[in-house]
Design a binder for these strands. Structure first.
Lengths: 344, 344
DNA sequence: ATAATCTATGCATACGGTTGCATAGGAATG
DNA sequence: CATTCCTATGCAACCGTATGCATAGATTAT
């Protein structure tokens, strides 16, 4: 078997408890003994058995993030990727490990998440809002099990902590950027009416439009879904209408591409005649032609903050609900890079 | 405290060992006792403490995947994403959890990976070839610690198990596809000379070219790095030379875009005058105009296989080295979608 | 000088499951 | 009917670490 705390104790001529105290900086140990023990540990190449430790402490020093393997969205999403890296970074820094686990429940009836929690295998959990089931979250809350939701949960009465980007601010930032580039008739193409983030972005869009006293046509706010075809159809309608916009904010890269292509097809030059902007910075926005100006979020930071707070919950056992909305920033590219400003 | 195995035993009127045996299907237990115990477990809502279990067994039923947080490549890479999902799926199926951990070593001198291993917190590890340090791997091997490398390790004398795509086959498949579309003068634009995968793909390219007795100009194989500018420069040179190719295989999406743009700029129509194909299927290849034909890999499956084998290593304690090279397939899009074939 | 207080350490037990060995009762065998 | 062999279960030790309580010796206070 491997080297145990007892072996170290024997080699240093002390009791196991003393070694344990040195390991954990608990109690008062004399300089001299301390040195002897370190010496012994080095000689024996002692590494504490984390399983035994976790078991004895009743805490494994592990957090988990729930994912949905069958969710094709998450696959392609660099968003998710970066976030995980941020989470790992924060966890690592506090001496926690990160388990990634599928959230669908399995045959035995007990979902893997529940199993991790009840089985004491994790100290806390990060839960994407999209996977959130109301019942599950309340169960967590009743047990006051540490949890942070990634993205704002739609059920507004929940007490859970969460992190998200500030979608309202993002909507405003989008308008403000376009305004600064001389666009005055700004439309919004959303990829879903129900989604909270779209609602919030549109709220921000409205606010900024009103604040700047710009034209606000209700038909400029249109909902479709994320597809090139649908996107083009929507944009075509906009550009064929009486009140033509001179710029558009799109929910995602696909819609932005659709907008660019449709506008071009109709003879608009981009960015001079028509500006296009979208949410989330990705390889597509970077490599499109023209490059697409995007509203970017520091998802790494989002993940880091989420994990940091989760760990605070775990260690301080404080279950006060806590919210963070991260500010976005614009990554400027050619799709809004007007040289000659439109009518001022 | 929570419900323990002893509580269940008491409620069922048996000894803890019997309950344990029921839990693990070990030994022979009478139908009747079994029922009593299940009954008790249900009533008490008993969930075994996994930490205690792991500790007692000396195996946590956890595997890890090493990542490099500071590696910007991995971020954007949907490749990695999908693979992790495949890994999680396989792990989950065998009752293992997956830890994601950064591979850089920290201040204390003991890297996090080593710590996980020595601390008995994981049973096995998946290691991206790109993060592989020779010394580390041999250390693992000396300890015969279960390990599977993701991607073929460059040090050929290593005994480690690994999974990768079959890059040579991929190179051949690329040529064959272009050939079937009527292209006969096929160039290869690589994003790095040293990379093993490029070498292998080029080897496959050569084989297929020779097999089909196509023209093979050495200047058609050119190395650059992954940037639009460099890519365009390389393609320009090719198209301005005496021996002009009529199609090109690119290492990645960026180079493919570069090729498309340069060819277009020179008046070539795509795909009719010039075919473009690249490795890895991504949102960019899908959304480009024209859509880019790509050589796709089932990275989910790659991850699944890797994890599956790792777990086999763990459970059977068989340390025979094992290699898998996954076959790729072509995702056909417009960039090679010639209607009128070239000279046959 | 004695009592009270600290400092530094050891002892014993707990954490929750697992498992080798022992054994009682019943079935099979001679 | 005695012996052997299963079947089903219990006992007790063990996995490696943490920690409350006890205590010996040193120090300080009275």
């Amino acid at each position: 078997m491997s080297v145990t705390i007892r072996d170290v104790a024997k080699a240093a001529g002390v009791s196991p408890s003393t070694v344990s105290r040195v390991l954990n900086n608990k109690g008062i140990i004399s300089e001299e003994t301390c040195e002897k023990i370190y010496q012994a540990m080095r000689e024996l190449k002692y590494v504490p058995n984390d399983m035994a430790r976790s078991f004895a402490n009743g805490s494994p020093r592990v957090i988990a993030i729930a994912i949905n393997v069958s969710d094709a969205q998450a696959f392609a999403n660099t968003f998710f990727n970066r976030m995980v890296f941020g989470i790992e970074t924060a966890a690592h820094q506090s001496g926690y490990n990160l388990i990634i686990t599928n959230a669908t429940s399995d045959r035995e009836g007990l979902g893997s998440i529940e199993r991790l929690i009840m089985g004491k295998k994790i100290d806390g959990i990060l839960f994407p809002a999209s996977l959130l089931q109301r019942s599950f979250l309340t169960a967590l809350e009743d047990n006051s099990f540490p949890c942070v939701v990634l993205g704002r949960p739609s059920a507004s009465d929940l007490e859970a902590s969460w992190v998200d980007i500030d979608n309202e601010q993002a909507g405003q930032a989008a308008v403000n950027h376009l305004y600064s580039k001389g666009y005055r008739r700004i439309a919004f193409l959303s990829n879903g009416e129900k989604e909270l983030f779209n609602q919030d972005r549109i709220a921000g869009y409205r606010k900024a439009i009103e604040k700047r006293r710009l034209a606000l046509e209700e038909i400029w706010i249109c909902h479709t879904n994320s597809s090139l075809q649908k996107g083009r159809a929507s944009v075509r309608q906009l550009l064929e209408g009486n009140e033509k916009p001179d710029a558009i904010i799109c929910s995602d890269e696909k819609l932005a591409l659709a907008a660019i292509r449709e506008a071009k097809a109709q003879g608009y030059r981009i960015p001079d005649d028509f500006g296009v902007l979208c949410f989330d910075d990705t390889p597509v926005t970077e490599l499109a032609e023209p490059g697409i100006t995007s509203v970017d979020v520091d998802t790494f930071e989002l993940g880091r903050l989420a994990a940091e707070n989760l760990i605070r919950q775990i260690e301080r056992a404080e279950k006060s609900s806590w919210r963070v909305q991260l500010t976005t920033h614009i990554i400027e590219r050619d799709s809004t890079g007007r040289k000659t400003h439109g009518k001022e």
